[in-house]
Design a protein around this nucleic acid. Structure first.
Length: 431
RNA sequence: UCCUGCGUAGCUCAAUGGUAGAGCAACCGGCUGUUAACCGGUUGGUUGGUGGUUCGAGUCCGCCCGCAGGAGCCA
């Protein structure tokens, strides 16, 4: 293979001549000197071309380049404190691969609707580049966390006849002569695979036809969901804490330039180290009331409640033992207090709220079936799920972490829509 | 689904019911260290659609469409 050079590794080639292949992200000209901001997907670098060095013809051609034209730029790498990245390229030659049409996205302000309409181009911008790189790092680290601890990756189906969450939020589709639904979670199948393989996880999209329109919701989002046999609520909290701590550490270590582009307060992220406070729902309600926030025991936390609660702490917090009424049918009851469940959600600090939800699952077939009937679920359809309690039932649990919500917090973003390349939202299916 | 707001040049926004403007982008010219560069000039409009009120509607009213912010629900 021929040798390729990338901006990300440019520091290894100081004082050598290299050719970079990329796109023109920005340009400033001063008559006899040109500053070209080149991006190649691994980073951004300033290329400096002076008329004296490159000759009149190349200089004139470069001066006319339109933004987002694709280029091969050859030049010598220099360390230079004046350059934003610390390095710049002294241009010797430029090969224009394609001269771009007039580019619609400028450095000036744009409205959200315009940027979302041009999402396929917006992702070229430095902020979007940084977010998508951090997202990828989070996913790699999450998978590595589970892979290195003996979990088996078992993918769960996208098409399913079952409803995990409420049926009103299901996407229905044709499945030959019957109807099927798009998955909202791999959890029920995870419970089956955990009984086969002990420790499992799945990673994939979840689709919810919720008519929700907030800064924390996507119609299509990605979840990583572990499920562990012979695990109780305390185990689940330990795993959540260790996972999140490792993800934060990995992002801080490997994505510092991207966090800098986002102007993320890394001090705040570094503070998110274990141990994470663990408080019961009941204690959390007390804390809310003490903070002067009206809230009644038995309600589910709303966006405002989570924000108030998470701002009381500098680290993520684990809120456990939610009331039966606000949690799904599969949550195990607390043997010490049957009004609450062995559930646990993690709330991110800085007002970001819920990023993980999970808990210990119901173990007894009869109680589980009774609960399903109470909620009006089609029990026949779920016989396979009840079988898991009929053939060697064990205490077990797991959780789901929403990748986009996690990335929203890590990047310090005001809205979840920038954390996935092509967000699907209530009023947006395109591009 | 509900509440609120907004649709005017490619973009971000002005315009008392009375001749649709500015900045940026684009284009032309100038400038040897710019960081959203700067300076001078030029071009650019079916004011989201539709019906109405009025001598006259970007502006007021009805309906429709689109988008944004928030709520509920959730990861």
């Amino acid at each position: 293979m021929r040798e390729r050079y990338y901006i990300e590794e440019i520091g290894r080639h100081v004082d050598r001549e290299v050719t970079l292949e990329g796109w023109l992200a920005g340009k400033r000209s001063s008559g006899k000197i040109l500053f070209l901001q080149l991006r190649d997907g691994t980073g951004f670098i300033q290329c400096v071309a002076s008329r004296a060095d490159v000759g009149d013809e190349t200089f004139a051609a470069a001066d006319e380049l339109s933004i987002e034209s694709s280029l091969r730029v050859t030049g010598t790498v220099h360390a230079d404190a004046r350059a934003p990245s610390g390095y710049e390229l002294s241009v010797a030659g430029i090969e224009i691969v394609h001269a771009a049409d007039e580019y619609p996205i400028s450095r000036k302000e744009h409205g959200t609707a315009f940027l979302m309409d041009n999402r396929h181009l917006w992702i070229r911008s430095s902020r979007q580049f940084a977010i998508l790189r951090i997202r990828a790092a989070v996913i790699v680290a999450a998978r590595r966390y589970f892979d290195s601890r003996g979990y088996t990756l078992v993918d769960t189906p996208i098409l399913t006849p079952n409803a995990v969450e409420g049926t009103t939020t299901l996407f229905e589709t044709k499945y030959f002569d019957e109807s099927a639904y798009l998955t909202q979670s791999g959890q029920l199948y995870n419970e089956a695979t955990a009984m086969a393989l002990g420790k499992v996880y799945c990673f994939g999209p979840a689709l919810r036809a919720e008519k929700s329109k907030t800064r924390r919701h996507l119609i299509e989002f990605w979840q990583i969901e572990p499920e562990i046999a012979y695990a109780d609520l305390e185990d689940i909290m330990d795993i959540q804490e260790e996972l999140v701590a490792e993800l934060i550490r990995h992002v801080l270590e490997t994505r510092a330039p991207e966090l800098a582009i986002l102007e993320r307060d890394t001090e705040a992220l570094a503070k998110a180290a274990p141990p994470f406070p663990r408080l019961s729902y009941t204690e959390a309600v007390k804390r809310l009331n003490e903070a002067g926030h009206a809230f009644e025991w038995g309600e589910d936390f709303g966006a405002e409640d989570e924000t108030v609660l998470s701002k009381l702490f500098e680290t993520p917090i684990l809120v456990h033992r939610y009331p039966r009424m606000v949690k799904p049918f599969y949550m195990e009851d607390d043997p010490d207090d049957e009004s609450v469940t062995l559930s646990v959600d993690m709330l991110a600090p800085e007002g970001y709220g819920e990023i993980v939800g999970g808990g210990q699952r119901a173990m007894d077939a009869e109680r589980l079936e009774r609960r399903m009937r109470e909620e009006g679920m089609p029990v026949d359809e779920y016989q396979w799920y009840l079988d898991l309690r009929r053939f060697g039932s064990v205490p077990h649990g797991g959780f789901g972490m929403g990748i986009e919500r996690f990335v929203t917090w890590v990047c310090g973003l005001p809205h979840i829509r920038e954390t996935i390349a092509f967000p699907r939202m209530l009023s947006r299916l395109r591009p």
